[in-house]
Simulated assay, not measured.
Amino acid sequence: MSSTNAISTALDALARVGLDYRFLLDAYDRTPFLTGMLTSLEIVVSTLAGSVVAGFVLLLLLRSRNRAVAGTTRAFVELARNTPTIVQLYCAFLVLNMLLSQWLHQQNLDNPFKPFFWVVFVLSLHKGAFHAEALRAGFDAVPAQTLEGAESLGLSRWVRLRRVELPLAIRTALPALVNNMVELVKASSLASAIAVGDITYQSIMIWTQRDNVLALMIVILLFFGALTWLVSRAGRWLERRLWVPGYGH
């Protein structure tokens, strides 16, 4: 029996117990499904990186000596933390994107921002707000004696931030940051809400034709479960790697 026949026989056997994966034999369904898995990975990687950048920027703005800047940033952080992610995504895509498209149309220009961009943009800012709060707590946990010692050495505010406060604050905030990233991986499935062709969206397209919801839901659960497990393990490794004996444990 050839490998193709063996796979077909195995998929037929699974279909008889209610797990229909025979769409994998059809290139018409298999290709977009595999593309959807790749798109989901791209969203996760992009938003993880984007949220870290957004978190650091928001933290710096929160710590600004300009009260207007710090106050405005605080208002944004509270708004981002206290409203549903999907509502933020709809507001960005259905409102901001539409207004931008109308303005560009008046200028005889096309809107370069596709749904993929809005997913990455919104999720990065949303979790960036949580990262900023976790980092703020980390900075608050830095011992005052350490800051006084750095100041007595004549270190500038920027040098103290970069070489003293930030390394210690990250170690304290890392468990919360990793938890935020795990939540971000799960939130990436919301991309299907605005028709981004990720694994969730492609699965919906397949099961509406083949009525194999259970089989595909299992794949989606395993897919995101594996991603969150990898992020969690990477975070644990980083915690051990950055541990300073006598500090934080």
Rank of each mutant, 00 (worst) to 15 (best):
F116N: 02
F117P: 05
I194D: 07
Q106G: 15
G149R: 12
F121H: 01
F113G: 01
T200A: 13
S124D: 12
V119W: 06
P143C: 03
H126A: 09
L153Y: 10
K127M: 10
E148P: 05
W103D: 00
E165T: 05
S124W: 08
S124N: 10
L147S: 07
Q145Y: 02
R163K: 15
G138A: 00
A191S: 09
L155P: 07
D140K: 02
V182K: 07
N180E: 13
I194E: 07
E148D: 15
G149D: 07
E133T: 09
I194W: 09
A191W: 02
D110S: 15
L153P: 06
N108D: 15
P143T: 04
A169Q: 01
M181P: 00
V182L: 08
S152D: 12
A191P: 02
V119Y: 04
A144N: 07
G128K: 09
I194C: 11
V182F: 08
R136Y: 03
L104P: 07
W118K: 02
A195N: 13
F116S: 01
L190A: 05
Q107Y: 08
S152N: 15
L174P: 02
S156Y: 05
E165P: 02
T200E: 06
R160S: 14
L168I: 06
Q107K: 14
N180K: 07
W103P: 00
A191L: 08
A144R: 11
Y201G: 02
F130G: 00
G128D: 09
P115D: 09
V142S: 01
Q107W: 13
V122M: 09
T200M: 14
N179G: 13
S188D: 05
L177C: 09
A150R: 06
V119F: 03
D110C: 07
V120F: 05
E148C: 06
S188N: 06
V164D: 06
L125H: 10
R171H: 04
G197R: 04
P112L: 03
G128M: 11
D198K: 04
V164G: 07
R162C: 12
A173M: 05
E183F: 11
R136P: 00
L184R: 04
V185A: 11
L161S: 09
W103H: 08
T146A: 09
A144S: 12
A129E: 03
F121A: 06
P167M: 03
N179D: 10
A195H: 10
L174N: 03
S188V: 04
Y201C: 08
N108Y: 13
L125I: 10
L168E: 03
